[in-house]
Amino acid sequence: MGYISDGFVEALNLLVSLDPEVLAISWVSIKVASISTALSTIVGVPLGFLVGIGRFRGRNFLVSIFNTLMALPTVVIGLMVYSLISRRGPLGELGLLYTQSAMVIGQFILAMPIVAALTLAVIGGVDPRIRKTALALGATDTQSAWAILSESQMGILAAVVAGFGRVFAEVGISMMLGGNIRGYTRNIPTAIALETSKGEFALGIALGLILLGVAFGINLFLQMARRK
């Protein structure tokens, strides 16, 4: 049991001393997850919003698709994108495999349905009085849609945070499409997997603590925003 406590103490040392490798790995995680979440937000929020307020043929089918995609395993996404961007694939010439861009593409496919589906759920459950009130106060259809979006901002923020949390902690996509290249595509989850397989618990625990810290920080931020 001593190796766990030793690993924990060493992990704290790595964190306190701002170990360059820990920082580099964390930066890759934050950078890639942030970009993929931002892209997922840009696409997923309007998509979820439009499907949420819209009443059209095939809406229920679209909702089912979003909900199904939410449960997509990361290795399946990794496999799909790998087959497209590997040297033999149709997009092989772009040379995307084992790059941060490939990780962003995979994580976007993972997070976008989550953001869209949760946004849709938020908009679907929005108080119908918002639209009626806005229209009665002289708002146009666009202004009333904006009012709905504005009133749902906490729910939408939670959808975005859920998307970020999912991509920040995933291993499958990062491993298959990023290749876990040290100093380039190695992020926190892939580094933890590698270090654990090598029996190097200290770095794994240190990165695990950062992962937990980021998750805690985001939830704290969400709580504070809610209270405001």
Binding site: R129, I130, T133, A136, A147, E151
Partner: peptide, 10 residues
């Protein structure tokens, strides 16, 4: 202008 029975405030 209209006031609903259960008004909504933004």
């Amino acid at each position: 202008g209209m006031v609903f029975q259960e008004p909504y405030l933004f």
